[in-house]
């Protein structure tokens, strides 16, 4: 079954992001929202862990990314930017949603 994981915490503040990565299975997707968007940046002490999620689709919520001054060229390769409509699509395309708070 497919699962959408949402993560809204910076990986540098709390362990929520790490917990999320530790509980994703193959056909899952991760959507980074709110302060979770910092986890999508490349060149950080956390980037390799995010990039190592082989087969897991990575998404970032554009409005939250832009609000925090992150440009698309700073993102880890393969991270796709979605808007709120895309967030809704991700929710309906997966069987269920787990929010890592």
């Amino acid at each position: 079954m497919s699962m959408l994981h949402t993560i809204n915490k910076s990986p540098f503040e709390k362990t929520s992001f790490e917990a999320c990565l530790n509980h994703v299975n193959g056909d899952s997707s991760i959507l980074m929202i709110e302060d979770g968007v910092y986890g999508a940046m490349k060149g950080t002490a956390f980037s390799e862990k995010v990039a190592a999620t082989n087969g897991v689709a990575l998404y970032i919520l554009g409005p939250d990314m832009q609000a925090r001054g992150i440009s698309e060229d700073r993102l880890i390769d393969g991270v796709k930017v979605v808007d709120y409509a895309g967030f809704v699509d991700l929710v309906t395309e997966h069987d269920k949603v787990q929010a890592w708070l």
Binding site: N8, P63, D83, A85, F87, V88, T92
Partner: peptide, 18 residues
């Protein structure tokens, strides 16, 4: 930000006809 996010998500879902 949770309430802001929830509000924007809810609006987007309604706009998409859900």
């Amino acid at each position: 930000q949770a309430s802001d996010s929830a509000l924007l998500f809810t609006k987007a879902a309604l706009e998409k006809g859900h």
